[in-house]
């Protein structure tokens, strides 16, 4: 549904988006991650046709955003960053306007508004003007606007920003549910949302895509992924470390915690032994009292940091040299 090819956007001398390519199919929810200023919003603005790309192209449902903007825009629902809405209109008036712009009239319009209001829980504020709304309601009003025409493509720029935990949960649920039939892109810098709602995630840093995969795939890139954490009682740390380091499958061992009763240790696998580490450790530990033993999945925040940080350090060094 959405195809982005080699998208570039320069502001003056700064390359805000630098050759981004990806595609999103129907039934996919793509999480768009990245530090602040990485180019997430700029990319989304180009996808929705708000700003034209410097080079590269965007296809939405087969329509080129530059050549056939109206046809492409008709397929998209868009929630911009900060959820703007006409402050002097009532929620109903605003949604009615959004519906009319999308070509809905009469009973189709009423139904569309009703559906959007129900999905976004806007009933209590329907006849209030937008500038009297709390941030959460305002946000959901703009969200309702983006889904009013039941679009095939949804582009959401930080849809959960400024919502309380309950509302965040609701919005994530909504995204996941709608993602079954639509192509959705949403940006966030809350990593737990990726697990909660995405089928795939892209990490973007300084205008470039630095990672692209399912949340599980991304987690596997974590240093932690595949490591085994275990808790053994009745022995000391040195003994555990010695026993573990003798195993051919273990690359490195760290003792996380040690007290009078038990030792918590973590063993990192050698690169070619994926999956068998836990079993080999369990076998090696026979006779000891193992209280806990599990294989780590890897953590997204760690992947995120390791992908977006080291480059930063490099560039800082490079600029120092200059």
């Amino acid at each position: 549904m959405i195809k982005v090819e080699n998208l570039v956007k320069t502001f003056g001398t700064k390359r805000a988006v630098d050759g981004v390519s990806f595609s999103v199919e129907r039934g996919e929810v793509l999480g768009f991650l990245g530090p602040n200023g990485a180019g997430k919003s700029t990319t989304m603005r180009m996808i929705t046709g708000f700003i034209p790309p410097t080079s590269g192209r965007v296809l939405v449902g087969g329509f080129d955003m530059v050549e056939k903007p109206t046809a492409a825009k008709r397929l998209i629902g868009y929630l911009p960053e900060n959820a703007p809405a006409y402050s002097d209109m009532t929620v109903y008036g605003f949604l009615s306007f959004a519906a009319e712009v999308r070509g809905l009239r009469g009973s189709a319009k009423k139904q569309a508004i009703h559906r959007a209001v129900e999905m976004c829980f806007l009933e209590p504020v329907l006849h209030q003007t937008v500038d009297t709304l709390s941030k959460g309601y305002r946000h959901r009003t703009c969200f309702a606007q983006s889904i009013i025409h039941d679009p095939e493509v949804l582009v959401l720029d930080e849809p959960t920003d400024g919502l309380d935990p309950n509302q965040k949960h609701e919005v994530r649920g909504l995204i996941r549910q709608m993602g079954e039939k639509k192509a959705i892109i949403f940006s966030t810098h809350i990593l737990e949302e990726v697990d909660a709602a995405c089928s795939r995630a892209i990490i973007i840093d300084r205008g470039r895509v630095v990672a692209n995969g399912t949340p599980a795939e991304l987690r596997r890139r974590s240093e932690l992924a595949g490591a085994v954490t275990l808790r053994v009682s009745g022995v000391n740390g040195a003994a555990v470390r010695e026993r573990l380091s003798q195993l051919p499958t273990v690359k490195r061992t760290t003792i996380l915690e040690e007290d009078n009763h038990a030792v918590t240790a973590r063993a990192f696998p050698k690169s070619d032994v994926n999956g068998v580490l836990a079993r080999s450790i369990a076998e090696a530990m026979q006779g000891w009292r193992i209280e806990e033993l599990h294989t780590e999945e890897g953590r997204l925040d760690e992947v995120f940091r390791s992908i977006t940080m080291p480059d930063t350090a490099e560039t800082q060094e490079a600029s120092k040299k200059k």
């Binding site: 603005r45 929705t48 046709g49 708000f50 903007p69 109206t70 046809a71 825009k73 008709r74 998209i76 868009y78 911009p80 900060n82 703007p84 809405a85 006409y86 402050s87 959004a98 712009v101 999308r102 070509g103 703009c142 606007q145």
Partner: peptide
């Protein structure tokens, strides 16, 4: 100022 221009210009109107 209010950012609604982003809504307006991403709607299917010229």
């Amino acid at each position: 100022r209010s950012g609604t221009i982003e809504l307006l210009l991403t709607m299917p109107i010229t």
